[in-house]
Every structure is written in structure tokens, then in C-alpha cells.
Design a binder for these strands. Structure first.
Length: 583
RNA sequence: GGGGCUGUAGCUCAGUCGGUUAGAGUGCCGGUCUGUCACACCGGAGGUCGCGAGUUCGAGUCUCGUCAGCCCCGCCA
């Protein structure tokens, strides 16, 4: 490993191998920066210590060639040391050299000068083998390895065993589209790739593997984003005879261990908020708590404000809520508009605001306020209130965006650089256009106190579900599960499934739950996302060795591809149309 | 499915109002050089301006379409 050479190693004979990162040919002397994944070291060739034949070979060395050099590690002469280089005290004096592999001129450079831009991502993905030689990607994948290793060690220390579950499986009940794999033996039938090992891990609980985990590959056939890949890796965990507290303690311990590997703070225990509190105070179920800014309820404070929008929304049962930016009155109209635009971009109908100065209050809402109102809202001179009036369903997401945008625009101070949070007691159900659906997945154990509400008011049934949030990103999500097949059946019925559908989709789970199922629960954590955040990468593509593009293509290996008639026929398939331009 | 941005030499980019020979840096090839580390210096090669139509006397530049990459919305319960 070349990157670890130091002056103490001076005088030692050695043989080094690696890639030619950079070369400097001075005529008589020739320098090569030799690279492997540990770093760089300067190899020097000169007539005084390199044999003549090797000197000739060295002249022909090109970028990215793989070479083998034998010689001595030498402390560099005075004035020739490089303080910017970890190995800058030493150099390797090559006595002879062998080119193990001749590289063609690389399509994209591995070496980059300090100011150089990265090549276009399209090219970096096409020539992934070269891009993966980049220092940053090597660091990312090495950290990823250490995090996976620490996960396995931690889970093992806590008595969990890793069990592999199938990749060729049955369509799972998550909401995403499945990747399907045609069966050759059973023509016309398909396997699905797992969106998660959810049902398998529950069945493992019934089978008695009371503490399970898996570094599990999952697949979802949905459109992609910077933080979404069609295949991704979860730390999947399930345990029997446990409480929510047991799981949260194990997992926050795991996160603290992983964070320590990455050199990130994770003080235990992580704070907890119920879903209701989180929505009330931050408008979001994954608030970014790096900065302090909370939503306030100003319905009472504005009860006698004679402003049409407010009165009509409150009369319709809505509330007046908003965030108060201390000193925010200094924001320009343009900055406020920017916040408003971001709120609108995420579906908000509009945003009201009020500034308070020595002269009084101003702004679309401000002009309807008198000093007493401003006092009641806690709005001091110099403050800015950003306000949304309406039903919580609309104002919460709006204010969540406003909160984030305002924090960015007003450059609110970061009060904690690493903000960990548990959000608990997610509702079991959600609804859109009058249709009820499972807000997490349909196996979440409802709170025992709320089971009576299943028939009367399902929307208010709280679940034993929790999310792990780091700096506003959801790292993972879990719950206790229903181990009583009758309760499970009931929830599925509430979701609108009839008995035939329940049998077809969940029969094997219900059957398993009927042979003696222990109470159990677990969580799934997004490994890629954790590595992304820990490395500070902008994209998941920088923490996955061979990622897909946003159109789900693999540019390096060139997938997907069309297949021949013969292969289709063996699978019992015919294509309706060929090629990408027909639909 | 929708919106936006980008596409010029191997790579990173510039290219004026539509104008006749499309440039720079780097890389590549050749040469000089014994302490460089973004080595320096001299010389050279390298272009389907993503692709296809259209407008025009004339298109890298304007219009339409299309492909690819990226970002966002929908979607991912």
C-alpha cells in the first residue's frame, strides 16, 4: 500500500505496484506518482539508481498503466519534499520497472488538477471503471464497507443473525411497481423482485429466529431522483417479544456506532417526537432540527383580525399558523417572494406575511394587524411572520416548506450539526380522495388503545410506527406488527380488501401467523442514504459502485437490452412492439 | 406522464448581431531538459458543433422535432 509510506520507512527495500497517476519527465530524471487505493507516492527514475533498460521502459510509461517497481524507499533530498502530499517526505527510487498492463489513453482523466471540473456525469457513468479510480469514490466505497461491517458486527453483538431472503419472490404489498421476472418453467407466470423482505422477516419471527437482520437488496420500479435508485440496500431488522423502546434503543445504538465509524456525532438517546407533535411544531414527519424554528398557532391571537382570508378559513374549521423569524423584517421583498414561490411550488395556495417595524406592521397580513395583535403573536419590532391559514392538512406541508426556505434565506444558525430524531406514533391509515390506504404498510400494529376506532374512525388510529430522521432525511422506518391473524385480517378489510383478495395476497402470511406467532416488530434503514449523508455526497450515485441513471439505465454495462426472439419464446413471451420509440 | 437545465476537439469550456478558415486550457503525438510534484519550453495532430428536419443567399448561432444526461413535480402508500 503506497499511501502509507513515511520517512521512518527510509532505506527499506520494497516492491510496489499500482497505477500511473501522473508523470513528470525532466529528461535525465523521471517522476511518476504511483497510485493505489491507499493513496499516492512519488516514484523516481534516474541513471544513478535505475538500470538503463528500465530507464528506457520508464520513458514509455503512460497515464493509468499498471506498473511494478522494485527499489528502495528514500527520504527525499532537502528542498525536494512536498508538504501537500501525505507521502511527501519520501520517494520510491526504482531500480527497475515492469509495465504489467498498458492502458489506452483514458477517455476521462483520473487525475484532476485542483481547479478542474469533473467530467460530465454521463461520461463518468459510461466510463465507470475510470471514475471509480477517483479518490472520492474510493473513499466513499471504503467507508461504505466499514459501515456494512460495523452493522454486521453490532447486530451480531446484540444477538441478531443474518438470514438471506429470496430475490426471486412474490409481488409484495408495498405500494411501488414491482420489477418482474418471467418464469421459463411456468410460462405466463412471473416472479417479482422484492421491494423489501417485509413478509419474509415476519415469517422468520414466526419460525423462531427471534432476532433477525439482513443487509438486503431491494427493488422498486419507480421514477428516480438524486436520492433514489431502482435497486438499493436496506439494513433490515426484525425481533420478537420486543417493545418499541427495545427497537429504538438497539437502532440508535447501531446508528451511534455507525456514526462513530464515519466521525459523526450521535449523542444518545435520540430525542423523540410523536407524529402529531412533529406535524404541529414542524409541519413535517421528518423535520430538519439542525436549526431552531417552530410553527406557532396564532388562531387565538388573530381571532378579531378583520381579514377575509383568515376569517373564512377559520370559520371553515381551519387554523392560523406560521413561523416567526426574529429579525426577519430585514428580509427584502424579493427574499420573501422567493420563500413564497417555494411554498407555492410544493402546492401551497399562498402565503401571508407581516413585518413589524417601529412604524407598525406591514405586508399582506401586516396591514390588518394592530400592535395588540402583533404582541399577542409574539411579533417584536424587527420580526417577520410567515403565515398560512386553513386546514392542517394543507398548512402543515406548506409551513414545512416555508420553515426550510425561511431558514435557508435568513441563514438561521445551525444549532446542532447532526440532528437525530425519532418520530413515533404515525397514524396507521391515511386517505386521499376518500380512499383509505396504509400510511406505512398494512402490517403496522395499531395502538391497543385505538383498536376500537378501527370501525368508527380509522384515520385517527395511531400506529406503533416510528421513523428515524437525520438532518431532515428519513433514514429508516419501522413498527411493531400484528401477530394476531384476525386483527391483521380486520385491518386488511378496513383497507377495502375482500376476503378473496386477502387470501390471494396475504394468505401465506396469515397462515403463518396462525401457527403460533410471537409479538414482533422491526425497522428498515436505507444503507445508501446513510452512506450518502455520512460522506456528504450530493447523489446516491456517488456511494453505489455501479448506479443507474435517472432513466434507470446502466451506462457502463449497458442495461437494459433487448433480447432475441429465441429467448422470448423460451419464456413464452411475445413483444407487442419493438424499440423504444414505439409505445 | 409533466416542467426545467445541459449537449461545440479525448476532457473542461469560450464562440459577439446568423457571415465565409470554429478557438483556449488540458490531454494525446514528436522533441529539448538531472529534483519535479498542475514541471518548464518548442513543434504537431485532433471537430458529423448530440441527431433529424425547417427558415435563410448563408445556421454552432433562429424554429420545430428527437435522443441522452442531470434537477424537480407526479410517482415511490
Amino acid at each position: 500500500m503506497v499511501g502509507g509510506l513515511r520517512s521512518e520507512d527510509g532505506g527499506e527495500r520494497a516492491t510496489l505496484a499500482g497505477w500511473v497517476h501522473r508523470r513528470r519527465d525532466l529528461g535525465g530524471l523521471l517522476f511518476v506518482d504511483l497510485r493505489d487505493r491507499s493513496g499516492l507516492v512519488q516514484v523516481s527514475f534516474g541513471p544513478e539508481w535505475t538500470d538503463a533498460a528500465s530507464l528506457e521502459v520508464a520513458r514509455g510509461i503512460g497515464h493509468e498503466d499498471v506498473i511494478l517497481v522494485a527499489g528502495t524507499i528514500a527520504v527525499r533530498p532537502d528542498g525536494a519534499r512536498n508538504a501537500d502530499m501525505a507521502t511527501g517526505e519520501v520517494e520510491f527510487r526504482a531500480e527497475n520497472v515492469e509495465i504489467l498492463s498498458d492502458a489506452r489513453t483514458p477517455e476521462i482523466p483520473v487525475y484532476r488538477a485542483p481547479e478542474d471540473e469533473l467530467p460530465a456525469e454521463e461520461l463518468r457513468l459510461q466510463h465507470r471503471v475510470l471514475d471509480l479510480r477517483r479518490f472520492e469514490l474510493q473513499q466513499n466505497l471504503m467507508l461504505r464497507h466499514r459501515l456494512v461491517l460495523e452493522t454486521r458486527n453490532y447486530m451480531d453483538r446484540h444477538g441478531f443473525i443474518e438470514v438471506e431472503t429470496p430475490i426471486l419472490t412474490k409481488a409484495t404489498p408495498e405500494g411501488a411497481r414491482d420489477y418482474l421476472v418471467p418464469s421459463r418453467v411456468h410460462k405466463g407466470e412471473f416472479y417479482a423482485l422484492p421491494q423489501s423482505p417485509q413478509i419474509y422477516k415476519q415469517i422468520l419471527m414466526v419460525a423462531g429466529f427471534d432476532r433477525y437482520f439482513q443487509i438486503a437488496r431491494c427493488f422498486r420500479d419507480e421514477d428516480l431522483r438524486a436520492d433514489r435508485q431502482p435497486e438499493f440496500t436496506q439494513i433490515d431488522v426484525e425481533a420478537s417479544f420486543v417493545t418499541v423502546d427495545d427497537i429504538l434503543e438497539w437502532i440508535q445504538g447501531l446508528m451511534a456506532s455507525l456514526a462513530a465509524v464515519a466521525g459523526i456525532d450521535a449523542p444518545l438517546p435520540f430525542p423523540r417526537l410523536t407524529w402529531n407533535e412533529s406535524m404541529e411544531r414542524y409541519g413535517s414527519d421528518r423535520p430538519d432540527l439542525r436549526y431552531d424554528l417552530e410553527i406557532e398557532d396564532w388562531t387565538a391571537a388573530t381571532a378579531d383580525v378583520d381579514f377575509g382570508i383568515i376569517r373564512s378559513q377559520v370559520n371553515a374549521g381551519g387554523r392560523v399558523r406560521g413561523v416567526r423569524l426574529a429579525g426577519g423584517a430585514s428580509l427584502s421583498r424579493r427574499q420573501i417572494e422567493e420563500i413564497e414561490n417555494r411554498a407555492k411550488a410544493s402546492g401551497a395556495p399562498g402565503l401571508l406575511w407581516a413585518k413589524r417595524s417601529e412604524e407598525g406592521t406591514s405586508g399582506p397580513l401586516g396591514k390588518f394587524l394592530d400592535p395588540a395583535h402583533a404582541d399577542a403573536m409574539g411579533l417584536a419590532v424587527g420580526d417577520l411572520a410567515l403565515v398560512s391559514a386553513g386546514p392542517d392538512r394543507l398548512t402543515s406541508p406548506t409551513l414545512a416548506v416555508v420553515r426550510a426556505a425561511a431558514a435557508a434565506t435568513a441563514q438561521l444558525p445551525i444549532v446542532r450539526e447532526h440532528a437525530w430524531l425519532w418520530v413515533t406514533d404515525f397514524p396507521v391509515f391515511d386517505e386521499e380522495n376518500g380512499v383509505l390506504f396504509a400510511s406505512h404498510h398494512p402490517f403496522v400494529m395499531p395502538h391497543l388503545d385505538d383498536i376500537g376506532l378501527l370501525d368508527t374512525d380509522p384515520i385517527s388510529v395511531r400506529g406503533t410506527a416510528y421513523d428515524l430522521v437525520y438532518n431532515g432525511t428519513e433514514f429508516g422506518s419501522g413498527s411493531l406488527r400484528m401477530h394476531d391473524p384476525e386483527l391483521q385480517r380486520k385491518v386488511l378489510r378496513v383497507l377495502g380488501l375482500d376476503d378473496a383478495q386477502i387470501e390471494e395476497k396475504f394468505g401465506f402470511l396469515l397462515s403463518a401467523l396462525s401457527v403460533g406467532a410471537p409479538p414482533h416488530g422491526g425497522i428498515a434503514l436505507g444503507m445508501d442514504r446513510i452512506v450518502q449523508r455520512f460522506t456528504g455526497s450530493m447523489s446516491l450515485r456517488d456511494v453505489v459502485a455501479f448506479p443507474k441513471t435517472t432513466a434507470a439505465r446502466a451506462l457502463f454495462e449497458g442495461a437494459p437490452t433487448s433480447v432475441g426472439e429465441g429467448e422470448l419464446e423460451a419464456l413464452g413471451l411475445t413483444l407487442r412492439s419493438k424499440g423504444r420509440t414505439e409505445s
